[in-house]
Design a binder for these strands. Structure first.
Lengths: 219, 219
DNA sequence: AATCGCTGTATTGTCGACAATTTAGTGTAC
DNA sequence: GTACACTAAATTGTCGACAATACAGCGATT
């Protein structure tokens, strides 16, 4: 029997609020008003505070005692720090994946890539968003390190997505990224840990540059 | 004018509670009772819940909806995952420190080490605890990456200390660790990023083995 | 005009009470 | 004896109200 995880109201509000923030409905840098949010989601302030507390854990918002919470601002230094970490952690994930992914997982990953290849052939823009997420997700799982998975999935990914969304980035770099993915999978398949790590780091570094440039020209 | 950060009651209770957990007064794996804690600290359940929420962010405790919070258990797989991450992040910190620490910081760091050398000469056990913390703290600061500093200081360090304390580890490996520290500083001083990273990773890997062995023989 | 201090308002922090859920215990059917 | 319902107690989740703090406006002083 699979235990269905109970879902408290605070849980749902937390997810909704995270979505509103990441998708930019509440823009980066803006202040959060507890009563306003409580009204908006039709819950008490207690659950709003609970949700805010969790968002703080994700580093999506920051709080100052007696003053309040605000959505983390978009800034170049922060982006740099974030991607410095992400590069390291995802590089680590790729290295571990090259070590621990079993034949079945690798096969499934290759299948995913060939689907992406097809979509690109049809000129779909679908790839960039979900496809990329899927790809990184698989490799992360392959690392078998729950803490690492958590750190990236529950923390860093949401913030990086916030940057992408609010900078209006969708679509570009599709084919290039695909080739990078391909190489990474090859490295993993041959259990070349060092190469997998290096290629992944480079892959992340590319998207970092991409976002940094966009952020520079926006400001 | 330096703004003194306001300190809410939840802040203080959070710190106290963290202390009681890390120092083992509330042992790893045990359940937390909100009303009991509220009575103990003489505050309302609201601030206890707030404190628990923050401890969850630090990954010192885990919560299950409608069931409650319990202190993270000590286990070999968790320890392995934790140190896998720590090795990577501290290696990264050392690499960045070799890149960014200025002459003054390096000088100060060397001074710290020579103080440690003196203490060891006098046969002090003082070194292992605070000295080691100081050392890693300095290098972390040298990385200039606030997010990285946060991840380690506010998250990982507390958990690793919990392991050490509750496994009754104090004192050993003093002189060895000192020599490792010495080599790392040398690498940083000569701005040898790769060497600094490798030596730091190895240093962390040693202490990992140490704790793992202790944990194995304890269980 | 700028700064200081006062006052009222808005916002966050804390509390106690109630609701919802889980847990423990007891009895019953098989 | 085991599994299953059922009830009572304990525990967590949510709420509204009050307390403490920060903020905005305004007048007085220089």
């Amino acid at each position: 029997m699979v235990k269905i995880l109970a879902q408290t109201t605070a849980d749902k509000v937390f997810q909704k609020l995270r979505h509103t923030i990441v998708e930019g409905e509440i823009p980066a840098g803006s202040k959060l008003n507890e009563v306003e949010l409580a009204t908006r989601f039709m819950v008490s302030r207690a659950v709003i505070r609970e949700a805010i507390s969790r968002l703080e854990a994700l580093r999506l918002i920051e709080r100052t005692p007696n003053v309040g919470a605000r959505v983390v601002p978009l800034s170049l230094p922060r982006l740099a720090e974030l991607y410095e970490i992400r590069e390291t952690l995802e590089g680590m994930a790729a290295r571990l994946a090259a070590l621990y992914m079993d034949a079945h997982e690798i096969q499934s990953l290759k299948k995913l890539l060939s689907q992406h290849a097809l979509q690109i052939g049809n000129g779909a823009k679908y790839y960039q968003e979900d496809g990329d997420v899927d790809f990184h997700y698989r490799i992360l799982q392959g690392s078998k390190n729950k803490l690492l998975i958590d750190l990236l999935m529950d923390g860093i990914y949401h913030i990086t997505r916030m940057y992408r969304v609010q900078l209006g980035m969708a679509g570009p770099r599709v084919t290039t990224a695909f080739n990078e993915h391909l190489r990474i999978v090859e490295a993993i398949e041959s259990h070349d840990t060092e190469l997998a790590e290096i290629l992944m780091r480079r892959h992340i570094a590319f998207t970092r540059k991409e976002i940094e440039n966009k952020l520079k020209e926006t400001k």
